[in-house]
Design a protein around this nucleic acid. Structure first.
Length: 928
RNA sequence: GGUCGCUUAGCUCAGCUGGUAGAGCGCUACGUUCACAUCGUAGAUGUCGCAGGUUCGAGUCCUGCAGCGACCACCA
């Protein structure tokens, strides 16, 4: 059976074939009946659906590896583990991709027309969409592919429509004209979350608005009252012969002044009181606008006077609502100046218009300089264009009523966050939630189910498409041209793929789900909205745990991105090092709340941990399989009487690792899971246990001993492969498949991936065996260390004197004489101290055991003596510190007893070490 | 402006409920004889950002400071 195993783990020879086998065996699918009829405990994760056009990147690699680890863990625990996969139609993103595509043919979407364009997008999606799902298979994801969903699937679309209508009926969806974020490139409205602020160095320009002559006395009065914004022409050297009084306002967007309809001051600002109600000439436009009073204006900020552009600023809009100021839209969809501005500016792009306006104002002597100004400019999250706030008629969701229960779920702890700190972020957002603009002026997405009747002016929000107006019977119906924000459908992801609004078996079985695993960036976009919808529509949280992982970055800490070219292709990594290597590397770096840095210029060392470990696992398994030989293997219980201390030790260590790994899995502490399995497998099983049992497996210590070793080895390997399986499903399965099944251990599970998760067996715990083995390890290490230190050659066998502090250790070491000989090249072991005057290397172990290595003629005496003097000096210092601590009454009286006891032991051990050193020193006469 | 986080070995980071520090990678030396050189063995490197405080005792708790970062925010 062993010949087929290559000396190096070759993932390409193993992984694709195993995945195919799992798939064909239907191992990932969970029918609703598993929960509803068999009564199995469900565990549900819904995948954060990648954009349908997406190509797998390392962020997906991380996100999905985590989910796969969790789902495999729960599956092995016997849960009905459902991981629902799928893709998101990603409205703007996908539409942009296809628009770029047809642009190469010199076409725009308008050239094609709506129907043809949408058809084109569908064709594109059907051709290339879902690539990413196949890519997930390459990294081992055990999704329930039979349930693969797409947010535009008919039944998911039906759910979207049902929700829209239902929320409208409850007055939670409404249509209104407000300032929204508008992307002049995508030509659509955006939600607040989709307009991402980007801080940058900008300028604050100061403009002068001349007051009408009748207001000059008031201006003078205001000036006398200390009104900073009031000035008089002719006072400044660069004024061009104008007369009279003016107001100074400031803005970061001078072009918007063409749409100003008022200037506002705070009603309680005594300085400006004389001017309220006065008129000013709005430069360049020939219009006259009033000075109004509104509490929004902060008298402390700037001059305490604000220009009001209601159609292009949310605050100004509200001021206008309150003060009755006019609203004047001065821009087109594409953010060029429209017909509401004077001729010279018409048609200019907003940034051209900015320059033109400033130039024109300067020419009229109405510019008052500018200052550098750091401020945040909102940009479109899909195309990075500067967003233009704009008055527009859109559909909104009233969020406050929905936010309440979602907030409560967090506050009462039923919704848990990992890392916990995200709870505050989530709650803060919900506490300050604003209504959600959900209509998008796009073609790709869920069409808004609203019809407008031209005959009776009715607005009809309908579950099914109407033939004629439900109110007046007219056929003059127009459907709203807009589609819904893509997140409006994603928020139903825990519900709609399972059949909601129908009360399906799937829904009953798999709602509510359990764990939401995603990146913190979409906490608001998605996570919070799913919570709100789950509670609103179903009265239950869609999941109870939110695990937010870090970002994958390059070696410099920059986010991996296409434009920077610093990405790492997961498939390339899989091809080179294997999926297991990639998964393990990611999990090993996946500490809670931290980002993962990977060097894209050196993937070799970036993934070395995983690759090396996969190979180690493979080779330890390979060795085991080769060493077991033919013949049945019995369970450890059956050979209990023949188990030796090293067998009991490794079983005990396995039990302890099992507990730690299980705990790590439960708490999302995946790097601890990785570290713990790594250490157990490599540092204990491979480095020690395998080395210890080699002679026994070779039959050198009798048949019973061999059987006990075989049983233990098979048992431990089985156990650790199970622990490791969620992290490294391929290599573990490849080995486990070949591992003999112990007699009397019940029937063998069909697949490792559905084998029961190990339960730490309490009777395997064996502190005594652990203590003994620790003693043995210390002995081996000490001899090795002494040999190195004194330059004893590898080929040179030595005699060692040992005086064991614990008499039991002697029996243990004698039982392991073979391994000791091999591991430390010890030929003769004497249980006595050295003869008087013997020259050699000595060490005293922490437990007080003394080790002496005669070095007849091999040692440079001068060098060793100097070394010992240094060593003694150091230890005296350390011991003095420990003794001082023990002499401290406060310490001995107030510290817990076991801490004091430990400190005493430490002092004792230090004294013993010091005695040993002094004795050793005594063997090197001379010096001083 | 508000909120939160980070600062531990050359690099990347662990260190959960306080008991004088660990891993991986890298580095140094030696070693290919029988699972693995994607290996083995041994080894070097830390005033745990700075300053105070609480405590018998602090990387671990508190306060302040410095540097870095994230998120939120309508201040013209």
């Amino acid at each position: 059976m062993s010949q087929e195993l290559a000396p190096r783990f070759d993932p390409r020879a193993v992984e694709p074939e195993l995945y195919r086998r799992w798939l064909e065996g239907g191992r990932f699918h969970v029918p609703a009946s598993a929960v509803l009829e068999e009564g199995r405990d469900p565990y549900v994760i819904v995948i954060p659906p990648p954009n349908v056009t997406a190509v797998l990147h390392m962020g997906h690699g991380l996100n999905n590896t985590i989910q796969d680890v969790l789902i495999r863990f729960r599956r092995m625990q016997g849960r009905a583990a459902e991981w629902l996969p799928g893709t998101d139609h990603a409205g703007i993103a996908t539409q942009n991709v296809v628009e770029r595509l047809i642009a190469r043919e010199g076409l725009t979407r308008d050239d094609l027309g709506r129907e043809a364009f949408v058809k084109r997008v569908w064709a594109f999606v059907e051709e290339t969409g879902g690539t990413i799902l196949d890519q997930l298979k390459a990294i081992g994801c055990s999704c329930d592919w039979e349930r693969t969903a797409f947010t535009l699937d008919p039944h998911l679309s039906r759910a979207v429509r049902e929700v829209f209508v239902r929320l409208y009926e409850q007055d939670l969806v409404y249509r209104g004209e407000y300032i929204i974020n508008w992307c002049p490139r995508c030509l659509t409205a955006l939600s607040n979350e989709e307009a991402e602020g980007e801080e940058g160095e900008g300028r604050l320009w100061h403009l002068r608005y001349p007051l009408v002559e009748s207001a000059w006395p008031a201006a003078e009065a205001a000036r006398a009252a200390g009104a900073e914004a009031v000035g008089r022409f002719g006072e400044e050297p660069d004024d061009q012969g104008r007369a009279g009084w003016y107001l100074t306002v400031s803005t970061t967007r001078p072009e918007t002044m063409l749409g100003d309809t008022a200037v506002a001051v705070n009603p309680d600002d005594a300085r400006y009181a004389p001017l309220v109600g006065a008129d000013v000439h709005l430069p360049l436009t020939g219009r006259t606008i009033p000075v109004v009073a509104d509490a929004y204006v902060d008298p402390e900020f700037g001059t305490g006077m604000v220009k009001v552009t209601p159609a292009h600023d949310p605050n100004d809009f509200e001021i206008a609502q309150r003060t009755g100021a006019a609203v004047l839209n001065v821009m087109t969809d594409a953010a060029a100046m429209n017909e509401n501005v004077p001729g010279p500016f018409r048609g200019l792009d907003r940034f051209e218009a900015r320059r033109a306006v400033l130039a024109a104002l300067a020419a009229e002597g109405l510019g008052a300089g500018d200052d550098p100004h750091v401020h945040t400019v909102p940009r479109c999250y899909r195309c990075d264009t500067v967003v233009e706030p704009r008055l527009s008629l859109q559909w909104f969701v009233r969020m406050k009523p929905l936010a309440g229960p979602a907030l409560e779920a967090s506050r009462n702890g039923s919704l848990r966050f990992t890392p916990e700190r995200h709870r505050k972020v989530y709650e803060h957002w919900l506490e300050n939630i604003r209504d959600w603009c959900i209509s998008r002026q796009l073609w790709w997405g869920h069409r808004i189910p609203v019809w407008y009747c031209d005959t009776c002016d009715g607005v009809h929000v309908l579950r099914s498409d109407p033939e004629v107006c439900p109110a007046c019977g007219s056929a003059e119906l127009r459907q709203d041209p807009d589609v819904l924000d893509t997140w409006f459908s994603s928020q139903l992801w825990p519900l709609s793929p399972f059949g909601w609004p129908d009360e399906t078996d799937d829904l009953k079985a798999f709602y509510p789900g359990h764990t939401m695993c995603t990146a913190p960036e979409i906490l608001f976009f998605w996570v919070a909205r799913m919570v709100m919808m789950g509670l609103e529509l179903r009265g239950e949280l869609p999941f109870t745990e939110v695990y937010l992982h870090g970002t994958v970055r390059d070696a410099q800490g920059r986010k991996m991105s296409k434009s920077l070219g610093n990405g790492i292709d997961p498939l390339a990594v899989v091809g080179r090092y294997g999926a297991d290597a990639m998964r393990f590397t990611l999990m090993n770096a996946c500490a809670i709340g931290t980002d993962i840095l990977l060097d894209h210029e050196d993937t070799e060392s970036a993934f070395a941990v995983g690759r090396n470990f996969a190979n180690k696992v493979w080779n330890a398994g390979r060795f085991t399989l080769m060493s077991l030989g033919e013949g049945p293997v019995r369970g450890v219980d059956a050979v209990a009487d023949d188990l030796r201390v090293e067998d009991r030790w490794i079983l005990s260590r396995l039990a302890s690792a099992t507990d730690a790994v299980t705990d790590g899995m439960e708490r999302f502490r995946l790097h601890e899971v990785a570290e713990r399995t790594y250490h157990f497998f490599w540092g204990e099983l491979a480095d020690w246990y395998l080395e210890l049992v080699k002679p026994r497996l070779a039959g050198e210590s009798g048949e019973a001993s061999r059987e006990a070793a075989r049983s233990t080895l098979v048992t431990v390997l089985d156990g650790v492969l199970r622990l490791l399986h969620p992290l490294m499903p391929f290599v573990t399965t490849a080995l486990w498949d070949r591992l003999p099944w112990p007699e009397g251990a019940g029937s063998r599970p069909g697949e490792l991936m559905v084998a029961p998760w190990p339960r730490a067996s309490a009777e395997w715990r064996n502190p005594e065996a652990e203590r003994m083995l620790a003693g043995f390890q210390a002995l081996v290490t000490a001899v090795r260390s002494l040999r190195k230190e004194y330059g004893v050659g590898e080929g040179q066998s030595v005699t060692v004197h040992v005086e064991a502090a614990d008499p039991a250790l002697r029996g243990v070491v004698e039982g392991l004489a073979g391994p000791l000989g091999r591991l430390a090249r010890v030929e003769t072991l004497l249980w006595s101290g050295p003869e008087a005057g013997a020259v050699g290397a000595a060490d005293v172990l922490h437990d007080g055991t003394r080790v002496f290595l005669p070095l007849a003629g091999l040692v440079d005496l001068e060098k060793e003596r100097a070394r010992l003097d240094r060593e003694i000096e150091r230890l005296v210092g350390v011991l003095r510190g420990t003794e001082a601590k023990l002499a401290n009454r406060n310490f001995t009286a107030r510290a817990p007893a076991e801490v004091v006891a430990r400190e005493r032991e430490k002092a004792e051990s230090q004294r013993a070490q010091l005695r040993g050193l002094e004795e050793k020193r005594a063997r090197f006469p001379g010096g001083g």
